[in-house]
């Protein structure tokens, strides 16, 4: 059996709300196969909580997460950051880019963190921008780009260090349908080889592009739907 890239076991997250505790995620267990996996569910069902735990932004109350062989639940902040840098890419709903950096510099940012020399950084960032069709926007700042263009720059940046997992939380939530479908197209296309794309959405049309759909309800995984 091949080693799993992204695996969760009995993953549970409880938040304190005044006197009581609410379970935002209840015993989530799943081994993500290669390809696009959509996580769907109504608002408040625990989708973002799940993504936060899978990416190591937060630590679970119980259970385990393994990303690229690293036990994220057992690691400290900085160690998790290191694992993220090496193995994961992110596209959020909005406000993805660093406003004082150009599109090119944003894409090059993970390479900077990794310590890649400047020239190589620029070359690779340029190639990545070309891949998302924005080579002519390299010198623009985020506020000079449309919402769809910003998301595409974010995708280029997420791919900078060739991650095993690409996380996206409502990546098309703020876009009109034309821009949204272009961004979605681009994301889906990144699921090559061993790479997993985890796509959090409440939009059934977006989920329809995934190879499987995980349905959450009140923090519990209630359905796994494989698509042909």
């Amino acid at each position: 059996m091949e080693a799993s890239v992204l695996r969760a076991k009995n993953l549970t997250k409880r938040y304190r709300q005044g006197e009581t505790w609410i379970e935002a995620l209840k015993g989530f267990t799943y081994d993500f196969p290669p390809g696009v996996t959509a996580v769907v569910g109504p608002s408040g069902s625990g989708k973002t909580t799940l993504l936060n735990l899978l990416a190591g932004f937060d630590t679970p109350s119980e259970g385990e997460v393994h990303l690229a062989g690293h036990p994220l639940h057992a690691l400290g902040e900085d160690e998790r950051a290191g694992v993220r840098l090496a193995h994961a890419g992110f596209v959020f709903q909005s406000w993805n880019l660093l406003p004082t950096l150009t599109a090119l510099e944003n894409v090059a940012f993970p390479l900077l963190l990794k310590g890649v020399p400047r020239r190589e950084r620029t070359e690779r960032a340029q190639a990545l921008l070309a891949e998302v069709g924005l080579e002519r926007r390299a010198g623009h700042f985020p506020n000079q780009l449309s919402g769809g263009e910003q998301q595409r720059v974010a995708i280029a940046r997420a791919l900078a260090l060739d991650p095993l997992v690409l996380f996206a939380d409502e990546p098309t939530g703020n876009l009109d349908s034309a821009a949204g479908s272009r961004v979605l197209e681009l994301l889906v296309r990144q699921a090559q080889g061993e790479r997993r794309v985890v796509l959090v959405t409440h939009d059934p049309e977006v989920a329809a592009r995934a190879e499987r759909i995980l349905r959450l309800k009140d923090g519990a995984l209630v359905e796994i739907q494989e698509r042909p």
Binding site: D78, A81, R84, F90, W95, L97, L113
Partner: peptide, 16 residues
Amino acid sequence: IREFGVMRAIGARRGF
């Protein structure tokens, strides 16, 4: 703060 959040999400350590 949001900017720092993005940096940390990408993989910047606290020291950075």
